[in-house]
Write a protein that binds this DNA or RNA. Structure first.
Lengths: 228, 228
DNA sequence: TAAAAACATTGATCTATATCAATGTTATGG
DNA sequence: CCATAACATTGATATAGATCAATGTTTTTA
């Protein structure tokens, strides 16, 4: 199982729009607005009216469930991806999860009625959307497995590998995520993240310098992620 | 959040076929086979070639991920539901999860190429399929939340409520599930299931007689499920 | 229907990880 | 640039729930 896909999905969802005709693309352009969000701002709120599907153009976003103080991060969204497809269901008028910007982000909000109309009108487009939803489903299942069946070392190793491979696309990256945010992503306490990162550094699996991290021993991390 | 939806989804997915024309329905009939499975038999195997989408006609099925000895049940499937929609993705030729029969079950295996073709040809059908996938996504997210953010009492209360409401459709039912299967569903050890069921009985929340269970105090169970 | 196997129950122990508490470090706004 | 808040780190403690072990009960099968 491609465990590394567990924190996020591919970033080529925009390709579904290639299935649209020129006219349909023009229509879509007319029926969308571009909005800029600052760090921390809410892009979609669980339970609020889902009048649009969100296309992330720039930035980094977390998609999560919340219940009182408790939150569960479902995935990270990189530019090129869609948010809110699960609200395309009939009789489902609201967002089924929340989304917030990790950093300054730009999103295009696409009118959901138009989006639904295009699905009905254009079978190829519909296929592509179904494809994306299938991918999303596999991502969440993998994440679900990782967070429930792996211990903390495995979960954190998985997160680091996933961030490197899918989000930052380099084994060396600066993450503007706090320890608390890492903890939320890996489903553990902040203190535990700190202790495990320290252990990984002692074991020469990573090099940490403040917010900069370099993955040194990918194989070992992968092993921990598979077994731990 | 409708926590009670966390172990399974609605059972009206067959309604998507109502969107098909008569000709398309005839085609679909021709491109499917009906297969009977005994208790415990594998209906879909993770990683195997997904040549078909599965429609459960009769019985009860678990959909799960497996990794060596570890398994994670994603959902229970009741008659009327589809299995394997996430394999409709482009470039995804294999099943992304396994499915096995809890009891004698009858399934219709629908040729996936035909299914995909119908999606492209019939926008309304495509919409319905998207609708179902959105519903599936919400179910799995709720289950994910429950299993990661609730303690064992809450998870088991949730499972009992879900089984009663969604699967057996009665507050009093006989479950042909073993304690081990209950444990897998609630994501805990068999011993823990037994101890908690005993406690629930002592507290007059349920009445247990072997494999028969009656939910006595739904409100209390719901409270435990929301908070515990 | 007897023997074996699978399943259920109970109690004792162990452990991963949360939580609590104290202190050091970095970032931020006036 | 100082004060205050947010964040990071470290160690000590608590606990939910797993695991282990022993025994009783039900189901299967030969």
């Amino acid at each position: 199982m491609a465990v590394r896909t567990s924190c996020t999905v591919g970033d080529d969802h925009f390709k579904c729009f290639e299935a649209l005709t020129e006219d349909q693309n023009v229509l879509l352009e007319k029926k969308q607005v571009t909005v800029e969000y600052n760090k921390g701002e809410i892009i979609a709120k669980y339970g609020s009216f889902a009048s649009h599907v969100i296309f992330l153009y720039e930035g980094l976003v977390k998609v999560y469930l919340e219940h009182g103080n408790e939150i569960l991060i479902l995935k990270i969204i990189s530019p090129g991806n869609l948010i809110g497809l699960s609200s395309l269901s009939e009789g489902e008028e609201t967002f089924q999860y929340s989304a917030a910007a990790y950093q300054r982000s730009i999103a295009k909000l696409i009118d959901i009625t138009t989006f639904k109309q295009l699905i009905r009108e254009n079978g190829l487009f519909a296929s592509k959307v179904i494809s994306i939803m299938g991918e999303n489903s596999n991502q969440i299942n993998n994440r679900f497995f990782c967070l429930t069946r792996r211990q903390s070392y495995g979960r954190l190793a998985n997160l680091l590998l996933c961030l490197a491979e899918r989000v930052f696309k380099s084994d060396k990256f600066e993450f503007d995520l706090t320890r608390k945010e890492l903890a939320e992503l890996a489903g553990m306490s902040t203190e535990n993240v700190i202790r495990i990162l320290k252990k990984f550094q002692e074991d020469k699996l990573i090099i940490l310098k403040g917010k900069n991290i370099e993955l040194q021993d990918l194989e070992a991390l992968q092993r921990i992620c598979d077994l731990g």
